[in-house]
């Protein structure tokens, strides 16, 4: 997916993109050294803060260990516990899937907004700003704000619903088994929707207008143009949105931590909050590690599934051009 016009002079030959533009690239080996040098700091950071911890978790998941005791081999004990005895694990897994499945709702809404602000109406930048404004809000604060909006007695949402005559008395949204998860999801969508919108807008703007013009000449109506041109061409952006949606199920940690603490019961526990409470509240780091490994594999599988649906564009996750 390397872009740019490929009319390079012969001396830089096979290389693409910006290759060969930086001094000292005459020799292939020096070139490679430079590439790895450039990658090194980022790779080091990911190694320290992502890969090593993941390996640590993977090793731990086959052991009995706590901060106070030396490790002992446990075989598949924790995996057995998780898969066959831990109902809470299955519930939190289910909740996580629901949470991720709600991402498309947000994405569809964001796409609608993006299509609207992609027109040449006045004040489109103001709308864009408003829609993005909730994303920079600190998640802890989002939790606090929405906790009160959802409050049974003085919450704005209940007030509006009562005034509209939809309900007679306040619903304790965050304390109810049925409503707690949808409520948390709503708050989460509110926060992340601006981010989706911006990503999609990027994709929309990279579509050459000439394509639409050609389609219009061919007599395609708006819906046909959307299905034949817009959707296929914003697939990379949609893929990125899905990835953000998946990741959102662990960045929502702060939100759930503040709003419900996972309750009532495990109604709003996601895998990530469950792992956290097993590790730090129950001091079962070994068991938490096993769930972490499963969690990672699951998410990875979902990401690659999303990638396949997006047409294998993962390497070219792009937000510009």
């Amino acid at each position: 997916m390397a872009g740019g016009a490929d009319n390079a002079p012969a001396l830089e030959g096979r290389r693409r993109g910006l290759a060969g533009l930086i001094p000292g690239s005459r020799k292939r080996s020096r070139d490679l050294a430079l590439i790895w040098l450039f990658l090194a700091p980022s790779l080091a950071i990911f190694a320290i803060y992502r890969i090593v911890p993941l390996i640590w978790n993977a090793v731990l998941s086959f052991q009995f260990w706590s901060p106070y005791k030396p490790a002992e081999f446990a075989g598949l004990y924790h995996y057995e516990e998780m898969l066959f005895y831990d109902d809470a694990f299955w519930q939190t897994l289910w909740n996580t899937l629901i949470f991720m499945a709600s991402a498309p709702v947000g994405i569809v809404f964001a796409l609608a907004v993006a299509l609207l602000v992609d027109t040449n109406i006045r004040g489109r930048n103001v709308y864009r700003t408003i829609f993005f404004m909730s994303y920079p809000v600190m998640t802890v604060a989002v939790g606090i704000i929405w906790q009160w909006l959802f409050n049974e007695n003085v919450g704005l949402i209940n007030y509006v619903l009562i005034e509209l005559g939809i309900i007679d008395r306040g619903i304790p949204f965050l304390e109810s088994f049925d409503w707690a998860l949808p409520s948390v999801i709503l708050a989460s969508i509110w926060q992340v929707i601006g981010f989706y919108m911006i990503i999609l807008l990027t994709g929309l703007q990279s579509i050459p207008p000439s394509l639409y013009e050609a389609a219009a000449i061919d007599g395609a109506n708006a819906l046909q143009r959307f299905r034949r041109i817009t959707l296929p061409l914003i697939r990379p952006s949609l893929f990125l949105c899905f990835v953000v949606g998946i990741i959102n199920s662990f960045t929502a940690f702060d939100l759930i931590f503040v709003m419900t603490g996972g309750g009532p019961g495990h109604a709003t526990d996601l895998l990530i909050t469950y792992i956290y409470s097993i590790a730090f509240r129950l001091s079962k780091f070994d068991y938490a590690a096993a769930i972490t490994v499963v969690n990672f594999l699951l998410f990875l599988a979902l990401a690659f599934l999303a990638n396949r649906l997006a047409g294998g564009e993962a390497g070219a996750v792009k937000t510009g051009g």
Partner: peptide, 27 residues
Amino acid sequence: ALTRDFPGKGATILLFLSCMMIPFQVT
């Protein structure tokens, strides 16, 4: 660096994408 061709590029990109799937809380 990722705009360049080099051996291991595909693996590096794969690594980056996998890293996104590791939640920070568990690390």
